[in-house]
Design a protein around this nucleic acid. Structure first.
Length: 537
RNA sequence: GGGCCCGUAGCUCAGUCAGGUAGAGCGGUGGGCUCUUAACCCAUUGGUCGGGGGUUCAAAUCCCCCCGGGCCCGCCA
């Protein structure tokens, strides 16, 4: 017996996740009035592409849930109670005095935000805003301060023994067998990771702690010795990560949270605590691979290979970044600037599929591609298709364009190739020009010339000065070459080497005309001189 | 010790998460356009889908085992 396959939503993994999530909730018998998805918002370093991916994917699931007819929203939970563990690369050394303090207590080293964490999370929020991602922002600090997490924290601390055992069983980490999974902010020195919490008073809901010190990366950092108490219904401290998710999930009623494989163990622990201690069935999860750089290393702040969303936006439209994250969720993603042109062109391809310019026979396949296009536009696709200029063509053209008028040159060439330039093409051209400027290979090497070539070039400069049209120049080159017994192809090649540092290029007549006769004469003249100099050596 | 990813054309990779005739770009070859290089256009070349077994009418795709490359966790968040 054959089962008819029904297309869920738009046929992407987001739709599948949304569907499975809803089925699970139905089985659990929970209310489906409002389904919350969550993403963490890092606040202790410059947000990279992976932090962005997490938030975008959570929002993608929210969109898919809405497509299935449910109300949904994405919570972006800002980890601003975390302590600063290290001064990020390139940041002012003065930050050292704030080490181990909550990032929300540290002033913004750049002076434009209320705090260090506001600055960092602000960068991510800007990137999300530019992409059109909507979310409900929750500051960790405010959440603790408001006291809404009190019940969850209370239960966890009350069951600290069991929690400690769960952590040990799953991860092998024994630390929480002897201390409470709660970090208090030291009321004396302001640091959060130097304190140890040793007793919980369930009547008063306070935690007793000592500022003893902590080992970070093999170095012991002394505490100030202060002893005090922290109120769990205030922002006096925070839960350790191995338990905080659980408290968040149950308090905020979160039904979906994705995570990278680096925190897989943490999530496993939190799931158990959530279910067994807090009696709340943990959210549906999706695990994704980390983003690696070209050499296969994890992208991280400390490795100094940060790739920020802002960087991406220099070369690609926000939709291309959304597409990258929505395309798939599994599999290693090596990420480097080189994929930007591909993704930009893929967006054009998907648009062709969406507007039926390209026929895809397989229904599933077609729906999935159309779905990807829809999600990449956050379900608000353009009404009509735009001009599709291959990204690489723009880059290519820009590399041979006269330096001082790249844009005009590129646009005029593209028009000559028959493309209609619209607003979107202009945006794309600007982005691709940035790409060419930053990643285009420009290697100027001395061009060796033989005597015949030098003679021919000298004559050419004299003639070119009086050229009256691009065609005129084209003919001059050809004639000069023949006159001096140089095969035209070779002569052309030399000229390309001189003018563009490569063996080929655009039709020379119009090109030289574009650059300007004076400039070309100057460049060729200099090349002849340097060639003569190297000969006399 | 625990877990994950990758292996597909000469090269770089897509396709795997919902099984349905193996793809793209670059390269190679031939041609077109050009008084003329390049670009461009057309055609063409090229793969035991790492290996073995299983499920299936049908497997690059799902399941198991193995080989090779790499990553994450076992500090902390």
């Amino acid at each position: 017996m054959k089962k008819e396959k029904q297309i869920i939503g738009h046929g992407t993994w987001l739709d599948k996740v949304a569907y499975e999530l809803v089925e699970r909730e139905k089985k659990l018998g929970r209310s489906l009035d409002l389904i919350r998805t969550e993403s963490g918002l890092g606040a202790s370093g410059i947000p990279h592409i992976g932090s962005m991916a997490d938030a975008i994917r959570a929002y993608g699931v929210t969109l898919a849930l809405r497509e299935l007819g449910y109300r949904s929203e994405t919570i972006a939970f800002c980890d601003d109670m975390d302590g600063l563990r290290k001064v990020p690369l390139g940041f002012p050394e003065e930050l050292k005095e704030y080490l181990l303090m909550p990032v929300s207590s540290i002033p913004d080293p750049f002076g434009c935000h209320k705090s260090y964490s506001d600055h960092m999370s602000g960068m991510l929020r800007d990137a999300l805003d530019r992409a059109g991602v909507e979310y409900v922002f929750k500051s960790g600090r405010e959440t603790y301060r408001s006291g809404v997490m009190r019940d969850a924290i209370h239960k966890i601390l009350l069951n600290a023994k069991v929690v400690g055992k769960i952590i040990k069983d799953v991860t092998g980490q024994e630390k929480y067998l002897n201390m409470l999974p709660y970090f208090a902010v030291c009321k004396n020195c302001g640091r959060i990771y130097t304190t140890q919490s040793y007793r919980y008073d369930p009547e008063k809901n306070i935690v007793h702690y000592r500022c003893t010190g902590v080992e970070i990366r093999g170095n012991w950092i002394n505490g100030c010795g202060y002893e005090g108490v922290a109120d769990i219904s205030r922002d006096d401290g925070k839960l350790a990560w191995k338990t905080e998710f659980a408290a968040r999930w149950s308090t905020l009623d979160i039904r979906f949270e994705a995570y990278g494989k680096d925190i897989a163990d943490s999530v496993k622990v939190n799931d158990i605590i959530c279910r067994e201690i807090l009696m709340f069935e943990p959210p549906f999860h999706v695990k994704y691979e980390l983003f690696l750089d070209k050499s296969g290393r994890k992208i991280s702040k400390s490795a100094g290979n940060v790739f920020t969303p802002q960087e991406w936006y220099k070369y690609g439209v926000p939709e291309s970044l959304l597409l990258l994250f929505f395309k798939r969720v599994t599999g290693t993603r090596t990420i480097s600037y080189e994929i930007i042109p591909k993704i930009m062109d893929e967006l054009d391809f998907l648009e062709d599929v969406y507007f039926n310019k390209v026929k895809i026979d397989n229904v599933m396949e077609r729906e999935k591609l159309r779905g990807l296009y829809l999600y990449a536009h956050l379900l608000k696709p353009p009404e009509k298709p735009s001009t599709h200029i291959p990204y690489s063509l723009i880059v290519e053209l820009s590399q041979v364009a006269p330096e001082d008028k790249r844009e005009e040159f590129v646009i005029s060439r593209i028009q000559r190739y028959g493309y209609k330039i619209d607003d979107k093409s202009l945006v794309k051209i600007k982005l691709a020009l940035n790409y060419a400027r930053d990643f285009g290979k420009i290697a100027r090497e001395p061009v060796p010339l033989n005597d015949a070539e030098i003679k021919a070039l000298r004559e050419l400069i004299l003639e070119i000065k009086n050229a009256s049209s691009p065609t005129d120049i084209q003919n001059m080159i050809f004639n000069t070459a023949r006159k001096h017994g140089i095969p035209p192809p070779e002569f052309f090649k030399k000229l390309y080497q001189i003018l563009l540092s490569r063996d080929y290029g655009p039709r020379l007549g119009p090109y030289i005309w574009d650059i300007g006769l004076d400039k070309v004469v100057k460049i060729i003249g200099e090349t002849i001189e340097s060639s003569l100099r190297s000969k006399s050596c």
